[in-house]
Computed example of a mutant assay.
Amino acid sequence: MTAEPAMSRRERTRSATLDEIKSTARELMHEQGSTDVRFTDIARAMGLSAPALYRYFDDRDELISALISDGFDSLGAAVAAASAPIDDADILGRWVAAAGAYRDWARDEPQRFALVLGMPVPGYSEPTEGMTTEAASRAMSQLSALFVAAAERGELRPPLIREASPELAVCQELKHEGQAELLPPESFQALLQTWAMLHGLVSLEVNGNLDWLTPQARDELFLSQVRLAALTAGLADPAA
């Protein structure tokens, strides 16, 4: 393999400044408890003028897009690292590990979680394609990979709900061309429902709606929800 050429001093300086702008924006989001960060606030925290930031990002939307892309990549890396040590044949174990990592990342990074999978940032217009959608696809494809792996091993059981709208099959083909050969529409629907069950409970917890439960109760509720999702979707054997 041909090694990539080393960056020049100017390129290294620019890359470091880009990273500093993004890390400053994340710190401000954390301090403010909001994803609605402004160029003027970032520039002030860095000791720069607001116009100076436009040498690195065309506008705030481009910065937010970069932060969302980084957030999805961070989430995807956490999920991948958690499930990697689990034997490939242990589909349920990989799902439990991945779900736990999803939860842990969201609790550790509540503002980034809100940024990538929460309410829209005020005034932000997300591009219909590009870095954010590609990063989201990379991160979320890990769940579909579990379903595909289970199907390839002949271990994906019919989901509890087997009636699926024909529209879902159309959407599946548009987003995951060729996947229907392994995942019928009802299993694709179950995949989406599995993510919804995971994300819904994690969102309730991250937003403090489950604070009335003890930490142990929240842990046990989460594990039962993860198991319920697997049973409903056909990832686990009901008799096990």
Results as ranks from 00 to 15, higher is better:
A3Q: 14
T132Y: 09
D70E: 13
D87W: 05
V116W: 12
V148W: 01
S187Y: 10
W105S: 03
E134L: 10
A78H: 04
A180D: 10
T24Q: 08
R44I: 00
L192N: 15
S144D: 00
G71I: 06
V170W: 09
Q225T: 04
R10I: 04
L63K: 08
A233N: 13
D90Q: 02
R10T: 07
E20I: 06
A229F: 01
S141D: 08
R60V: 03
E177N: 08
P122D: 12
G200E: 11
W212V: 00
R26F: 07
W95K: 11
S8Y: 08
L53W: 00
R9M: 06
E20K: 12
A99V: 06
E129M: 11
A135T: 11
D19A: 14
D59V: 01
R112K: 04
G208R: 12
S23A: 08
V96L: 10
V206W: 07
A139T: 03
L182K: 15
A180S: 14
L117S: 15
E181W: 11
H176D: 07
D237T: 02
I68Q: 15
A229N: 04
Q111C: 05
S141R: 02
Q142I: 01
Y124V: 05
I64M: 14
M131T: 12
T128A: 14
A50L: 00
G71F: 14
P185Y: 05
L231V: 08
I86Y: 02
R10C: 03
D219C: 06
T133E: 13
D73T: 03
L223W: 04
R218E: 13
V79P: 01
R9G: 02
Y56V: 09
T232P: 00
P238G: 04
G208I: 05
